[in-house]
């Protein structure tokens, strides 16, 4: 027997979500069905609230509920250093370090011809105009260390250097707190490659 239409519709919607397969979607739908009306309302409100309340910052293209975002409008953050990342989630990760006092620029991905993503599909022109406006002395390229992130970093460096800013790339290597013995071979090999003089 097929599920009754309202339940089938919910399963259908839920299974469109990333990492959610049909079985998980069924389990979630049954969970929702058993919620009280108030709880279901609260879930629905949260979903609609994200749509209504979240947007992309018009300066850095990170996710925000105010425009410009809290980081871009914070006078205590230095506009002299820009950290370029692929994804809004990378901003959250870097913010958790509480080390970085500059501002961000979110590209919205990395160059990947196999996926049909070229420089024009990313917020690169916007980055260049931010730098051209002046006040930026360093751009830290924190794209992912995959080949696509490296190619994007190379591409950005070529465009940014003529503008007279310092362009740096984040280092990659061993996770801190990990013993050498337990690092996987690839990470160790990369760390060896990125060794520096003492």
């Amino acid at each position: 027997m097929d599920y009754p239409v309202p339940l089938a519709r919910l399963i259908d919607e839920l299974s469109k979500m990333p990492t959610v397969g049909p079985k998980t979607a069924q389990r979630m739908a049954f969970y929702v069905m058993r919620l009280t009306t108030e709880e279901a309302q609260s879930l629905a409100d949260a979903i609609l609230g994200v749509k209504a309340g979240m947007r992309y910052c018009s300066v850095c293209f990170g996710i925000t509920d105010t425009d410009p975002c809290a980081i871009c409008s914070n006078p205590a953050r230095s506009g002299a250093v820009l950290c370029v990342v692929e994804d809004p989630r990378d901003v959250i990760a870097l913010e958790r370090t509480r080390e970085f006092r500059g501002r961000y620029h979110v590209l919205g991905g990395a160059i990947s011809p196999l996926d049909g993503v070229g420089p024009d599909d990313l917020k690169i022109a916007e980055l260049l105009s931010r730098v051209r406006e002046g006040g930026v002395t360093e751009v830290i390229v924190a794209t992912n260390p995959r080949v696509e992130g490296e190619a994007t970093a190379f591409y950005l460096a070529r465009l940014l250097k003529p503008l007279g800013v310092r362009v740096t790339r984040i280092a990659h290597g061993l996770p801190v707190g990990g013993d050498l013995e337990y690092a996987d071979e690839v990470t160790l090999a990369r760390a060896l490659e990125g060794r520096r003089d003492l």
Binding site: I111, S112, P113, L114, G116, G118, P119, D120, V147, E148, A151, T152, F154, Y155, R158
Partner: peptide, 17 residues
């Protein structure tokens, strides 16, 4: 594979990256 895709799609700019 990326470099080939870049050329096949006639993507703007060279393959330097």
């Amino acid at each position: 594979a990326q470099r080939n895709a870049h050329m096949r799609r006639g993507a703007p700019g060279g393959t330097e990256a």
